[in-house]
């Protein structure tokens, strides 16, 4: 028996790590990975709530989050490739011009 709050704390910690990574990382790919980490933290709380309230809808919602994450990864990585092709850098600080 593990209390619900432990799961929520773990999920919250992962989310916080994702936010920190999003803020301090300069590599655009790592920033994307931080977003995935945030989504994972949210997913954990969804599943924990589903188990707590005996409602499978929480698990179903995780699927929607995963679909959104997959779509986001596909489009985001395509954007990263397009950015790299024109600027030849992955550092977000150097991607600061609207026009080359």
């Amino acid at each position: 028996m593990v209390p619900l709050s432990y799961y929520l704390l773990l999920g919250g910690f992962l989310f916080a790590c994702g936010v920190i990574g999003f803020l301090i990382k300069r590599n655009i790919i790592t920033i994307f990975m931080s977003i995935e980490l945030m989504l994972n933290g949210v997913n954990l709380s969804f599943v924990a709530f589903a188990a707590h309230w005996h409602a499978l809808a929480g698990q179903v919602f995780v699927f929607f989050v995963m679909v959104v994450a997959a779509a986001e990864a596909a489009v985001g990585l395509a954007i990263i490739i397009a950015v790299f092709r024109t600027r030849e850098t992955l550092n977000v600080d150097q991607v600061n011009l609207l026009k080359l």
Binding site: L4, S5, Y7, L9, G12
Partner: peptide
């Protein structure tokens, strides 16, 4: 974390019940 630990109580999740 403080709010979660303080207010949600620590009701155990019945694992495997779902």
């Amino acid at each position: 974390g403080w709010v979660v630990l303080r207010h949600s109580g620590t009701e155990p999740v019945p694992i495997g019940a779902l």
